[in-house]
Design a protein around this nucleic acid. Structure first.
Lengths: 183, 183
DNA sequence: CAATTTACGTCAGGAGTGTTGACATAAAAA
DNA sequence: TTTTTATGTCAACACTCCTGACGTAAATTG
């Protein structure tokens, strides 16, 4: 926000007006960039999904299971922030199609621990490859400093009350190798 | 993509592995940031929409009509990149509810020129205010350099073949004041 | 001027995602 | 033993997007 109480802004109408105008514009531009960039960002994976009876929700589910093998249904629900009914509609076919394996928890037999199967890992790899290529190109062309700025702004876009939790998750190692940690 | 044939990566396992790991990680982190940030970015406006029989598509439609008063249906379709059937379902209620006004083109009477009504502008203002506040906070806390990096990365995320057109649009002035330029 | 193209509207059907409400079961916890 | 927790599931509804098909008015073209 511009500081309207600033004397320099008050006594210089054209300069002040211009600054305010630029600020408003930049915010609108930022919002539009979010829209256009996100639309194309998801485009590649979406194409791989269509025709398979799968959608973006299936991709996200595969991604987060691959990210944290052995994650429980509740854990997945918390990250995705959807209802269990919504998750069930996505998870059921993934299990039926052999992309995800559900296992009864060892210590807590109520829990269902989720893992990608060999086939699931392969498909998830295909999906993320598309996005990774786009990100790679963007990051490389933009340069390290721009990427750092991107990360900062994106992090600050997240709801402040859950930001720390989300960032802890994003920047945690977990199981980045997507290894099916069975036992 | 990492070059696995690179000698430096081959003869320095820990260092090379680490570099590759960090790169892969950063890409995954970037993808997750896109997901989490976009989800929360749209959250505020979504809340204002629910219960009104309106959705995100209505918001986008209002936004781009407000951005370019007098835009034709075809112009809107090109920006939104959806089918005319999809747009019709959104546009019809907006017109019926008096948020958007459709006018026959003066020079080309086949065209329908779209404008926000007083009420439409008010509602669009409410919607964009929510997003603007989130962006304002993020931009202010991140700092100007980070914002510049954000803009660069986001721009590079857009499909390269339409990137220039999109950026021309985003960074054009058009009618940023949302004035209903009737005549 | 007749034929074609353009801009738009619309009916019909289908897929995917997300929601709320309600009910059921097995297992852990109190 | 009672309650709570983790999960599954049936049903219904809202929003968004798509493809295919048909229709109309107006501009353009030969």
């Amino acid at each position: 926000m511009a500081d309207f109480s600033s004397p320099s802004l008050r006594r210089a109408p054209p300069r002040g007006d211009d600054r305010l105008f630029l600020t408003e514009r930049k915010l609108r531009q930022g919002a539009e960039l979010m829209f256009f960039a996100y639309r194309d960002f998801t485009e590649d994976a979406d194409k791989l999904l269509t025709g398979r009876d799968y959608g973006r929700a299936h991709h996200r589910t595969l991604h987060f299971i691959g990210r944290q093998p052995g994650i429980s249904v509740a854990g997945l629900l918390e990250i995705l922030a959807i209802t269990k009914q919504s998750l069930a509609r996505v998870l059921k076919p993934l299990i039926a199609d052999g992309l995800v394996r559900s296992e009864t928890g060892a210590d807590d037999r109520r829990k269902r621990l989720l893992y990608l199967t060999e086939e699931g890992r392969a498909f998830e790899g295909q999906l993320s490859l598309a996005q990774r290529e786009r990100l790679t190109n963007a990051f490389r062309e933009a340069g390290p400093e721009a990427v750092e700025g991107f990360r900062r702004v994106m992090a600050l876009m997240i709801d402040s009350d859950r930001r720390d939790d989300i960032l802890d998750f994003v920047y945690s190692n977990a199981d980045a190798g997507n290894v099916e940690t069975k036992e």
